[in-house]
Amino acid sequence: MYLDAQKVAAALPWPALIDSLSHIFTQPVHSPVRHHHRIDLPDAPAAMMLLMPAWIEGQYLGVKQVNVFPGNNASGLPALSSNYLLSCGKTGQPLAQLEGNELTARRTAAASALASRYLSRPDASRLLMVGSGRMARYLVPAHCSVRNITQVTVTDLSLASAQKFAEELRSTGLQANAISLDQLEQATANADIISCATLSTEPLIYGDWLQPGVHLDLIGSFTPTMREADDVAVQRCDVFVDTRAGALAESGDLIIPMSNGKLTTSDILAEFTELCAGTHRGRAQLENPDSAMTLFKSVGASIEDLAAAILAYERVSAHQNA
Rank of each mutant, 00 (worst) to 15 (best):
Q285N: 12
C276F: 07
L169E: 01
V63I: 15
Y206E: 08
V241Q: 02
M258V: 08
D290W: 06
A160G: 14
S259D: 11
L95D: 07
S82I: 01
P15T: 13
A5Y: 06
N73W: 12
D230F: 05
R137E: 13
S161A: 15
P212A: 08
A11Q: 07
T279P: 09
K90H: 12
L77V: 04
R227D: 02
S20V: 04
T265D: 13
A5Q: 14
I149D: 02
T104Q: 13
I194A: 07
G246W: 05
S291Q: 14
P141E: 09
D208Y: 05
A160H: 13
A124W: 04
S116A: 15
E274M: 08
L17H: 06
C144N: 10
S87K: 04
V241E: 01
E271T: 10
I256W: 00
A312R: 05
A197E: 04
R170S: 13
G278V: 10
D231K: 11
R137F: 07
R117Q: 14
N83G: 13
A79I: 11
L218H: 00
A292I: 03
T279M: 10
E168K: 02
P122V: 10
G220A: 10
S259A: 13
P289L: 04
Y118V: 06
A233T: 07
G71M: 09
F165K: 01
A46R: 11
L139T: 03
I24A: 02
A160P: 06
D19S: 14
S132H: 03
A109G: 15
I303L: 14
L306G: 08
G62A: 11
L119V: 10
E287V: 12
A5G: 14
